[in-house]
Design a protein around this nucleic acid. Sequence first.
DNA 1: AAGTAACCCAACCGCCACGGA
DNA 2: TTCCGTGGCGGTTGGGTTACT
Length: 300
Amino acid sequence: MGKGRAPCCDKTKVKRGPWSPEEDIKLISFIQKFGHENWRSLPKQSGLLRCGKSCRLRWINYLRPDLKRGNFTLEEEETIIKLHHNYGNKWSKIASQLPGRTDNEIKNVWHTHLKKRLVQSSGTADEPASPCSSGSVSRGKDDKSQVEDYLNRENNQESSSRNELSTSLSSGGSNQQDDLKIDDLTFEYIGEAYSEFNDIIQEVDKPDLLEIPFDSDPDIWSFLDISNSFQESTANENSSGSRTTEEESDEEEVKKWFKHLESELGLEEDDNQQQYKQGTQHKEEKSSSSLLKTYEVMIH
DNA sequence: AAGTAACCCAACCGCCACGGA
DNA sequence: TTCCGTGGCGGTTGGGTTACT
């Protein structure tokens, strides 16, 4: 023995455990600038004391701008159940059909909520047959019909909850079609909002990769600072000129996401700071964090 | 209020597939 | 064809939080 696969990195020299906001920012900034062509070398080049795998996971599962946050909708949950029924534990395959959701997230939701719910509703702890399971075992009829039963039940519940929602939303009362409209519009909005980030992230994924001219860590951050401030000033120049409304809405979306990210990372300013800011409108722009700058750069 | 159990989810681990040398 | 490096995937773990006694 002893011929086992070499570990992906020296575990004694890498940091493990939860990511700090500083690390997140480093990772985001680096990927935003240089992309992530090589996860293995990324930590070294970015100055992160993390394993490349860890960086990849953090980016994919948490930092990607095109991620949806928050609870899964009923539609999403139903989709997961259906897809799991078809694909089994092929979480990445399922995730590929749920924009903005990660395989890890879906896996967690399945194990913590959906599986239990299925068990409760069917009365049996059946595991959907995996298409990859040994041989071509024909899926039991019961299995399928149980899922279908469940989905029907869920649809009915959803309809009634939609009715409740619409009643509370509209003073004049509404029919179910209107409810569906509201719902569809909501999802349309979400889809649009995140498609903006998809565009951005595509750029991040395949930038015409700059040859990173250094190996060292500290230098890159001063370089990034310079670069960002340059781009910021360029952006400001542009803003005085002819910026399309499309560009502005892009920026708004990125800002929204950035604000959300800041709160996720615990970088929000406290009340005192906000009060101070209210009194000093002039300083407001200057005090915006460098992270915001970073994300503004993404859309220019 | 304190202790414990249950739950949730981010992160880690190890294996596999794939592409290039 | 084989070997090696890398990314990706799915299973599992462990720490934090919430609910319960």
